[in-house]
Structure formats: C-alpha cells, structure tokens
Design a protein around this nucleic acid. Structure first.
Lengths: 142, 142
DNA sequence: GATACATCCTCTAGCCGCTAGAGGTTCAAG
DNA sequence: CTTGAACCTCTAGCGGCTAGAGGATGTATC
C-alpha cells in the first residue's frame, strides 16, 4: 500500500493534484488508515500513470475521463478511443500551424530591431500596426 | 468619441474584456457621460489595438504591460522591447518543439489502431505504458 | 512510552485571461 | 414619450492546478 506522497513521487504528480483528481472524480476514493490517511494500491497507481501520461500528450481531463472509461471496458469497440486521439492530433496540428505563423512574425520583428530608441523600435511598431504583419493571426485562445 | 460597443467592434474585443483590461489597469479609465457610460478617444483605440495585436502574437498581459510602458517612452533605448520579443520567440519555439513530439506520438498511436476491441486498442495501450513512446514529453503545462 | 518531525489531513483562496449572467440604468431614434 | 438596444456594476465560473494556514497522524529513535 502506498501513501499519497509515495504515489506522488512514483508518478511525478503533486500531492495536491492527486487530491484534486479525486475531488473531481477522476481518481477513485482510496482506502484510508484508521487515522484517515489515504492508502493506494497498484491499480490506482496504474490509473494515475495513465492520467499523467495522457496529460503529457495534451489530452484534457474530460477526454481522459472518456479514455479511462473505455479502458475500463475492454470488450467495447475501440473506434471511440481512436476518435478521441484523432481529435487531439488535429488540435495539436492546428496549434502548431498557429505557432508557426507567430514564429515567423516574431522573428521578423526581432531581426528588424536596430537597437535604437523605443520611438523607432520595429518591435513596437509592428505591435502598433497589424498591417505590417505578413500573416493573419486572428485567434487568441488555444 | 466611441462607446464601448463601438470600440469592441473596431478591435474585435468583447465588451467585458475591455472592462476587464480597465480593471487590471491595462487600459486607462476613460471619460464618462453624465449618465456614467464610458466614452473612448482615438488614443485609447490605438492602445487597445496594440494590446489585442500583442495578445494575438501570444504575449502575456504582463509582457504587454511592459511593452506599453516602453511604447509610452519613445526616448528610452529599445533593447528591452527587443528582449521581451526574443523571450516570446523562444517560448513559441519551445512550444513548437513540444507539440512536434506530441504529434509524432499521436500519429503513431492513431495509425496503429486496428479498430478492434478497446482491450486491444493501441491508443489505450500507449497511454497505459509510457515506455511504448519514442519521445520523452515530460512537461505538462505551457 | 515519550518525543521529534516528516508527512498527512481539510479548507480556502489564488493563478491567467477572460466569459457569462443577473438585475438594473441610460441613450438615441422615432 | 416610449421603446429597446446598449450600457452599467457585481458576482461567479471556466480549466487545471497550486499555495498556504492550521492542525492531526505515522514512524523512527531514544
């Protein structure tokens, strides 16, 4: 049986985060000692590893909830899991495309800065005037 | 003089967001009508455009605060603005590198899914077992 | 058995950058 | 003078944690 601290170290998850996952129902309520401290078993270690690994791959907690559910039912068809992963892949690709455009613009800004006064600074000038940009980059979130 | 709604449309910023920027001191307090409604001038329109454009390029509100401050003092040397932009560029490049690794992994997962039962699903298998991954992808945030 | 002290507990509040909604007021057109 | 769109303030919520207060427990050592 593992304490929350041990689980924390083994999975690289902060103690508070583990408790948070329990609170939102992503991790099950573990057993407790007489004094009320949490004790975990290996199934729970595996579950947390799954969650963490999924987070590292960028899945949202909601997506992970679905994936865990699928993982808990090995006889269901797996196209749903596949769909979730494809969705995630698509998102990653969209974000990459956006970042690529941003990088281009930032590089140009930085290269053109001649190191004089802020009044003539190309960086600030570009920020002031979107029409100096080569690309559109409308979306802000994500 | 512009109403907040007009300013909103001109800059593509939601009304609440404009008020939020005022609240956190990023936008100055505008003039008011007798009845208490906000009225903006062109300087404020420019400022908001600057903010929005910077956001589109991924700058944090804190970074934008610095940039605005620099922009307000045209006689200072501009290496600070340059440094902020370089920092931002670096961040973008790091995020791109991370996303690239994620994309590789996700692609592999999706390609290897044979469409059977979840019990044999490659997607779920990879999530269960990090050692099946080709790349490390440790960081979660950002 | 006492003591020390690391780890655990719950609870609340905060981070970023907004966004939504309730409930009420003002402005401008007709 | 009435309508109704747009405005006002205020509070609370999103995701995904993170930090800290203030107190209880567990384990190793004497």
């Amino acid at each position: 049986m593992l304490t929350i601290g041990t689980l924390s170290k083994k999975t690289g998850t902060k103690v508070q985060t583990i408790r948070y996952y329990e609170q939102i129902g992503l991790m099950p309520e573990p057993g407790r000692t007489e004094g009320g401290q949490r004790r975990y078993d290996n199934a729970q270690l595996d579950r947390l590893s799954f969650i963490r690994h999924s987070r590292q791959l960028g899945f949202s907690l909601d997506a992970i909830r679905e994936l865990l559910d699928l993982s808990d039912h090995p006889n269901r068809p797996c196209h749903e899991a596949d769909a979730i992963a494809r969705r995630q892949l698509k998102q990653v690709e969209q974000r990459m495309a956006r970042l690529k455009a941003l990088r281009t613009e930032l590089k140009r800004m930085v290269h053109e800065c001649s190191g004089g006064r802020t009044g003539d600074c190309k960086v600030l000038e570009v920020l002031r005037d979107h029409s100096e940009c080569l690309t559109e980059h409308e979306e802000i979130g994500a």
